[in-house]
Design a protein around this nucleic acid. Structure first.
Lengths: 358, 358
DNA sequence: GTGAAAGCGCTAACAA
DNA sequence: TTGTTAGCGCTTTCAC
């Protein structure tokens, strides 16, 4: 049955035989647990060396129940926001001697469920998830219930009391929006990749991604406080791909009462918006102002550079991993909800609205 | 010994007992192998449902020897080049029902070895690696020898006959360099993140990253063919971080015979170069020309947009994964070396060298 | 300090 | 078609 010629790997038994000790003794020195004499140690190590022994982590995990892996499910690894956060997670994991296994949900709840199922099947020691939807979290409850630690990244779930690290999304959105209203804008669009059943925004109830929901809430409240009527008319959902974003921004900018400012929910959306604005021959900030979440690389090298909401992305990943790891190590404490602060980096993409008429 | 209250998970035996069949029978329907009657199927499934059975992939892997995981070791997941390639790998893996476990080498050979060791220990079904160094590949040989398939991404290893997918680095560098010499440049710098023992470039023998070595070769050959003397004087190694890059570019641009054009080996390096050029008050392409490898997002939105060597990054990842997967499925064939074609996207960052004097 | 033996949860012969 | 019996490679009692 075994693939032709594939050398069977050398096991503890092999080493034991070679070293002329029992399997248990060999296992002890090889696994670095229990007690053994100096002499035995030497013999076993020599044998292991000679045979080129490599431990089978799988078998080890089988008996110990620990895999040394933490599972991470993010929305979209191609989004630099997530890849940077994952870097934070990886660094923290490595520091603790753990490995990371990464899965993409593509922000699809079904893919998220499947990823969670697979990772749980692999008996990861713990999970970090950026939940795509706040209404469908049975699979996350299951993790928690099964006793394996779960931590949430970037998105809180009111109904799930687990370690969570987010940023002050609402406050950030409010500050950005206020910057826009203070500059005189009255027609401000909010564009996000998060989608809903109907694509059209009607009310907050549709927005199941907590971070975005908070942002939209903050955005709307500042608009209202500035006396802007029905600010929700300019909220756009579903900018899930460059193509979708282009369609949305195209429609937005060809409106009679087109917005004089746009707040973008992530840097991928903002990039497409920036491109399209330029493509239409409009100038930032003369014709239109732009602020985006996430201090992505490109935002500082455009002309003008883009004013951004700077999220501590790396720290976000690092912290959530550290919380999880502490729990893995057996620390008992009530779930923590950490909210990291954002700041606005003012660059050149915000100005007063164009003279009028349009 | 078990963590207080942590519910022991339900096993095949539990389901078998509940369904009043033998363990083997339950295992057959649960594992979806062998044969069984409709009636038994129903009973077992009902029992599994009732008990909320979740298969233990670990145990499954133990006996089958297959983990359903492919291990990937890349240089730097934060580099969009790699994250996009990884996306290609993930997509191909998912399509084949496999999972991906990702590790970062940070381009450090020791970290790469450690990552390989860990992944092999986890008994991944196969590995995809972007080898950091071509001189130290014993650990890669070991993989190959152990019978598990190995495939190389972006960097070939002459001494290792395994499936490899790269791009035509030399040709790409030649084309880009020719574009620069054709515009009249005689002082062209090549800046790469790849480091060597002495930082200073002396000869090709120092460059152990095959892709970069090919590029430098191509670059130098075109320079020489254009009659440029000692073009290697402007080759710079070790732009491993924004800080290092800044130091390098700073030194480069303050030289008396400072280059009038720069060829950047990746988009991270290019971004820092772009920033510094602008910081020094120089204009592209009036004062200095710039071409970079990798059609990163930001290169199209700067003013001027940057001329780039467009690598089929996603395809690179997808293809290498597909080659590996075919081997996983048992396909026997000699190792393949696929070389994908690049193209140059001409944008606005190349012009003639400034009038003279400087 | 060392060894013998049981068992983790599953798959895979082999019988029945 | 179903059941019995061995393991996979390791850790972990429990004796000695």
């Amino acid at each position: 049955m075994k693939d032709s010629g594939k050398a069977r790997s050398v096991t503890v038994s092999d080493v034991a035989r070679e070293a002329k000790v029992s399997k248990a003794t060999a296992a002890r020195v090889l696994g670095g647990y229990g007690v053994f004499s100096e002499k035995v140690y030497e013999k076993v190590m020599a044998a292991a060396q000679a045979l080129d022994y490599r431990p089978n982590e799988l078998a080890r995990s089988m008996t110990t129940g620990k895999s040394g892996i933490i599972g991470v499910v993010v929305g979209d690894i191609e989004n630099p926001f997530f890849s940077y956060a994952v870097r934070g997670i990886s660094d923290a994991a490595r520091a603790a001697g753990l490995n990371v296994i990464l899965a993409n949900s593509g922000e699809q709840i079904e893919a998220e469920k499947s990823a969670v199922r697979v990772l749980m099947g692999k008996r990861v020691d713990g999970l970090i998830v950026t939940p795509a939807e706040s209404r469908d979290i049975a699979h996350l409850r299951d993790i928690h219930r099964s006793g394996r630690p779960l931590a949430l990244l970037d998105r809180a779930l009111p109904d799930l009391q687990v370690d969570t690290v987010t940023v002050d999304d609402r406050k950030a959105a409010m500050r950005a929006t206020r910057m826009l209203t203070a500059a005189g804008h009255r027609d401000i669009a909010y564009v996000t990749a998060v989608d809903s059943d109907r694509h059209e925004y009607r009310d907050l109830e549709q927005v199941y991604t907590s971070s975005v929901r908070e942002r939209v809430e903050g955005f709307l409240s500042v608009c209202r406080e500035a006396g802007i009527e029905t600010p929700e008319r300019l909220v756009r959902l579903g900018a899930t791909s460059p193509e979708e974003t282009r369609t949305i921004i195209q429609a937005l900018l060809s409106k009679a009462d087109r917005p004089t400012a746009i707040l973008a929910s992530d840097s991928l959306v903002a990039l497409e918006i920036f491109r399209h604005i330029r493509y239409m021959g409009l100038h930032i900030p003369r014709d239109i102002s732009l602020i985006t979440f996430h201090n992505a690389d490109w935002t500082s090298v455009t002309s003008p550079p883009i004013t951004v909401i700077d999220q501590p992305v790396y720290a976000l990943g690092k912290m959530v991993a550290e919380l999880l790891i502490r729990r893995l190590k057996g620390e008992k404490r009530p779930p923590e909800r950490v909210v990291l602060q954002t700041s606005i980096i003012e660059r050149g993409s915000v100005g007063p609205p164009p003279p009028s008429g349009r």
